[in-house]
Write a protein that binds this DNA or RNA. Structure first.
Lengths: 354, 354
DNA sequence: ATGAAAGCGCTAACAG
DNA sequence: CTGTTAGCGCTTTCAT
């Protein structure tokens, strides 16, 4: 008959055990402080339940041993990994960086770490990524964009953890969503240009989902307002692979102005594209905003200082990250999430280009 | 006398245990396949040791149960978390994005996940971050930049895991380093401009470590070459907080040209700053490259398409990420790292602006 | 090629 | 407020 004994005290000191990292463990700290392991655990995770004297003693022992808790073990024991997964379509896309930064930092403050995955705008990679990340038992998952694949939705739902979709709105989030309406942006920009007397709009857009939503709403609204001459004429559109670059913006204007010399406004799916359009316009001697109005999207940090300064759709990318992080942390700590759909809105920042 | 029994088989099915996630476990798969748990483990982690028939049976069971291995548990048992930590000074700094993307993807291919932390260019945050990340027992850690704080170096060394410092070179890496010499860049750019007959150079630079290294080497070389008129005259320099923006580039030129009207070349610490300088030059009617040569850094995707196209220092940011990832994976899997110092070099891409 | 036993380092549950 | 006990779900070691 084997005695389990105090499994952990079996070979407390030294690495005589099966394997082990040879590092300081919780039990080593407990020994030094002359307390039970669980007390050390409490000092770390719920100091409010520990007497000041004990706190002092244990903390000194932690200090002296240089103990760093093994969160893998803690996570396994508590079913709370304090890990949050994020799936980003493109890490190098500048619009998402602020969200990512806010996410990382807000989570870090709460003791959570972000795991990053890049899906590259394709559903299959996204699904594979979800599986890989799920194995880590994250306490939550943040998606840039909304989950369209049915299989992905099921897997997320099945995980039973908070899921936050972002940068978009949907009436049917997997769990919760924080973003804004790309459709409304398209409508608003079309109206903005219409009010300023533009009648022949065009579009330069990257071909990702959300950019297309904005373009579609823009085109429809333009048609509705009779901007294209008559409701059925299509708004000339130049597509380019995501993410948009200055170069593709230049190509966009070159293409559009050749095929449709009378356009007087362009809605770009990113500020980088808009900067490209502006650049090409300068090269061709097309005056902005005189002959051509240009509206960008993202209100990136160069928009205000470009010449002419870019009118752009501004979105609070940091807020999206912060709110998503709070949403997950709240839920993970047992607090109910405030609401499942958060619209952070947007605004059109009027500058010289339109 | 307690029997430990088969700890795991105690309450195989259902959540009658202490807690637990109610999810499918390895043992559930084993039961369904009628094999020992370890066999399922082998099918997943070392299929080469399992017979084809067994492989088939177990894989079917995995499929039918929808089993997703708990890597937290696996990591604890094997002391290999398959997690890699990355510390970035600034997530939103465009130069690092490609490295981050390459890192994430190369690691993901090898079954590793990246955990992200942002240090914000300060040593104290960096140290705190290291502690937080170490608790996760990563199999490796990647730093953008080199570790200067002594405390940080010690903690990294003490962790006993591969550490890769990047985006710089040092003869004394904590472990290994993959980057390039910022000093050489400064020298090379100064020589480049000198060869093209520029004699009154200036600098617009962000005030981060690496940018300052480039600026310093540039200034020293310029002085050595007699570019500043005589060896002791300082090269006019405009500093701006990192990261550099288009706006600060414009301010930089405005400031420099007011105080030093005769400058004929500017070395910028980023392409965004260079774009700002170019923009401001256009506004002021300063011809580029006629009166003023401008060199950027980063060779970002807009450099080639700007007007005038930006001459820039090109660095293979993706290679840094890929090599760093391989370095870590190799070491983690027991293969020896190829070498501890990798210089990926750089090149000056000659375009219109200089 | 497969299996049994024994933990990895920590925390939840329940006492006192 | 502190301690005891029993695992969390997996993999290593050693045996067959």
């Amino acid at each position: 008959m084997k005695q389990t004994g105090s499994a952990s005290s079996a070979k407390a000191n030294g690495r005589s055990g099966r394997r082990g990292t040879g590092k300081v463990r919780l039990i080593d700290v407990a020994k030094l402080a002359g307390v039970a392991p669980i007390t050390v655990s409490r000092v770390i995770n719920s100091p409010e339940y520990v007497s000041p004297e004990m706190l002092r003693r244990v903390r000194e022992a932690i200090e002296r041993t240089g103990y760093v808790p093994n969160l893998l073990a803690g996570g396994l024991a508590s079913s709370r990994s304090r890990l949050v997964a994020a799936i980003v379509p493109s890490i190098s896309s500048p619009v998402f960086q602020q969200t990512l930064a806010a996410l990382t930092n807000t989570l870090a403050e709460a003791g959570y770490q972000l795991m990053l995955g890049e899906s590259g705008y394709t559903e299959s990679r996204e699904d594979a990524l979800i599986d890989a990340l799920m194995g880590r038992r994250p306490d939550g998952i943040v998606l840039i964009g909304i989950m369209r694949s049915a299989r992905g939705r099921l897997r997320l739902l099945g995980a039973g953890i908070p899921v936050v979709e972002t940068w978009d709105l949907t009436p049917t989030p997997v769990d919760s969503v924080v973003g804004f309406s790309h459709e409304k942006i398209g409508v608003a920009v079309a109206e903005y240009l219409h009010e300023r007397g533009r009648h022949r709009p065009a579009i330069v857009t990257a071909s990702d989902d959300r950019a297309r939503q904005r373009a579609k709403a823009f085109a429809e609204t333009a048609a509705r307002l009779g901007m294209a001459g008559m409701p059925t004429v299509e708004v000339p559109t130049f597509f380019t692979p995501a993410p948009g670059t200055l170069g593709s913006g230049r190509k966009g204007l070159a293409d559009l102005i050749t095929r449709h010399p009378h356009i007087d406004a362009i809605f770009c799916s990113s500020d980088m594209l808009a900067l490209g359009v502006v650049t090409e316009a300068q090269v061709r001697g097309v005056s902005i905003p005189g002959r051509l109005a240009v509206v960008g999207y993202g209100d990136l940090n160069f928009a205000a200082d470009a010449v002419p300064a870019l009118t752009s759709v501004s979105v609070d990318a940091s807020a999206i990250g912060r709110i998503a992080a709070r949403c997950i942390v709240d839920r993970a700590e047992g607090r109910p999430a405030e609401r499942s759909i958060t619209d952070v809105g947007f605004s059109i920042v009027r500058r010289e280009s339109a």
